[in-house]
Amino acid sequence: MSPTFPAAARRFWNQLPFFVWLVVLWMMLWGQFTVLAAVTGVAVAIGVTKVFHLPTAELSGRVNLWYGLVFVVLFLAELVRGAVMVAWQALRPGETTSGIIAVQLRTDADLIMTHVSVASSLIPGSLIVEADRERRILYLHVLGIRHAADAEAQRRNVLVWEERIVRAVGSRADVAALKQARKEAAR
């Protein structure tokens, strides 16, 4: 956008996707996609954005539709796999194992960290228990952890989700950070 564009208008355009998401979320919560639900959703979204002054989330302005589609398909498959794993743990005789693991993310974007947290928590069998924003560490409670190798496999799995999300919606700097982290890990 040009430097003469007013700051308030720039902020509005940056926040518009979140505002629209709040309206859609409101309509989904009520289970109604009607004009009344949309109007009340707009009112609630205005109230939420005025009462809770959240910092502006920086969008990358980059969306890769192919990687977005890959993410959605793999995420749906992981939902099914996770549900089967949780059901098996609930039905099988014996002790259900779990553990808490820490995952050091490779990118520094708050929005990517949030997406990784949400994706990890939505997959059955894992739940984010804490996020250390400054150090970029996610702490997850995970079912099925019996050995250190299981914990390491789950750690790698979260990093794979981070990479998929960055490839779908991350900035060029985020993609470069992932490439750099992979190079350093290969040494």
Rank of each mutant, 00 (worst) to 15 (best):
I123V: 14
A102P: 03
V86C: 05
A9Q: 11
L76Q: 02
Q104T: 06
F52K: 06
M113I: 14
R155I: 01
A177E: 14
E162P: 08
P17R: 05
V42T: 04
L143V: 04
S117K: 04
V63I: 12
I46R: 06
V44Q: 05
R146I: 02
T107K: 06
A177V: 09
Q104A: 11
L122T: 08
V39A: 10
A83F: 02
A102G: 08
A37F: 04
E134Q: 15
R172W: 13
Q180R: 14
G68R: 13
F19H: 04
F75V: 08
V158G: 04
E58L: 15
E95G: 02
V20A: 10
D108P: 01
E152W: 02
V63K: 02
V103C: 05
I145C: 00
A185W: 00
A153C: 00
G125N: 03
W30H: 06
E130C: 05
S98E: 12
G99R: 01
L140N: 01
E58S: 14
I101Y: 07
L36Q: 09
F33K: 00
E152Y: 05
W13C: 09
F71P: 15
L159A: 03
D110R: 07
E184Q: 12
A83D: 02
Q32S: 10
V80H: 01
V44M: 12
A168H: 12
G99T: 00
A185K: 08
S121D: 10
W13V: 11
A181F: 13
V84M: 13
L122C: 11
L36G: 07
V48H: 05
V160D: 15
F19R: 03
S60N: 06
A185I: 02
L127N: 01
A77E: 13
A119R: 06
T97R: 09
L65C: 03
W21R: 03
A148P: 04
L59V: 13
R106V: 02
L54D: 02
A168K: 13
E58N: 13
I145K: 00
V73Q: 09
A149C: 04
V142G: 03
R164H: 12
L159Q: 06
G68C: 11
A77G: 15
A168Y: 09
V73R: 08
A37R: 03
R172S: 14
I165C: 07
F12I: 10
R167M: 07
R155K: 04
M85A: 08
D108E: 15
P17L: 05
V84A: 13
R155F: 00
A177Q: 15
V86R: 02
I123R: 01
F18T: 12
A77W: 13
R172V: 11
W88M: 08
D132A: 14
L76K: 01
L79R: 00
L138W: 07
N14L: 09
E130S: 12
